[in-house]
Design a protein around this nucleic acid. Sequence first.
DNA 1: CGACACATGTAACACGTTACATGATTTG
DNA 2: CAAATCATGTAACGTGTTACATGTGTCG
Lengths: 192, 192
Amino acid sequence: MSVKFGLLALFADGPKYGYQLRTEFEARTGGTWPVNVGQIYTTLERLERDGLVAAEGTNDEGRVVYGMTEPGRAALDTWFSTPVADTDRPRNELAIKLLMAATTPGVDVTSVVRRQRTESVRLMRDYTTLRRAADEVDDVAGVLLLDSLVFALEGEVRWLDHVESTVLRRGGRLPAPTRSRRAARPTERHAR
Amino acid sequence: MSVKFGLLALFADGPKYGYQLRTEFEARTGGTWPVNVGQIYTTLERLERDGLVAAEGTNDEGRVVYGMTEPGRAALDTWFSTPVADTDRPRNELAIKLLMAATTPGVDVTSVVRRQRTESVRLMRDYTTLRRAADEVDDVAGVLLLDSLVFALEGEVRWLDHVESTVLRRGGRLPAPTRSRRAARPTERHAR
DNA sequence: CGACACATGTAACACGTTACATGATTTG
DNA sequence: CAAATCATGTAACGTGTTACATGTGTCG
């Protein structure tokens, strides 16, 4: 939903035409996370299909401009006022990978963890550099975005270390849990 | 790719039949992240289509069992030995939402942040409780999984606070960056 | 018996994403 | 002029995910 609502949000300050959305989307997210232009048009089409935006005629240059509809406005408000729930979050690929590695016979978990750690730290360094650059251009949005990435990576590295030490303490391998009773989720799982 | 490779990994210790994959997948990830059974079969079908697993006959109960093929084995090894890169990571919906909120006129960013903070903290509490439960049953995998969620949420809350103070310092609104030059990504964006 | 877990599938959809075709306009 | 950017689209694919149909076996 990120791209979809991200684009929708752009219509909050007036009608836009297709290509414009790309530029603005990337600008507002600080240039990190480029969007393939094609995706703009597909997403726009789907927004239109769902009645959240509608063509509103052509502007001076003859481009077809789209504007937010009432339902669109409502959907956007809902998006903003509804927190991201746990069920909305994508499965964490790294966590799955590591757990599988730790419970799969013949896999050297420690190597997997270390390789990931190197990569994660490298990424953190890169993002920090970019952050400094964004800061110098007073790109506040870009700085915040990069901060979020760095914060997430810090947690990731902490977790990696935690996993490594846990696994080592257990002799390099975790027991594949046998028929353990499933714990209930904190909230019900609804449509994603 | 999480579910796909997650299932593939289950074949590392011998052939399995469909339904079995569901139980084992959930067990190995500590019961958090349930999988709709239907998805097991669709994913299995796709794994077979791609030649990573193959039907290997029937077991005692007459169930069709699948096994990992050589290409499958290779794909799994690659998955384990290749760190998750930045380009593999899904866009962070929360980050996009907040940046959009902060640059969209008429949106009360602080409310958005606070609501999310409440929800994130609540989630953290829930996960911590579940963690304790998993710990008591010696479900190591489950504990680690929940740790990863908690670590991530800690970073998220830190970031939320950071955003709130940044936005407040700027008078409750961020400037929509105008035509800022796009920063290059640390690594090239390749197929996701 | 009836509820429930076990079990197998299929059809359909949403989103994200890319590759490709095609043309106008700008600029070094 | 040639290259780059602006601009619009479409076809196609991959993965995640659900809803639904359908049947067997087990246990209180």
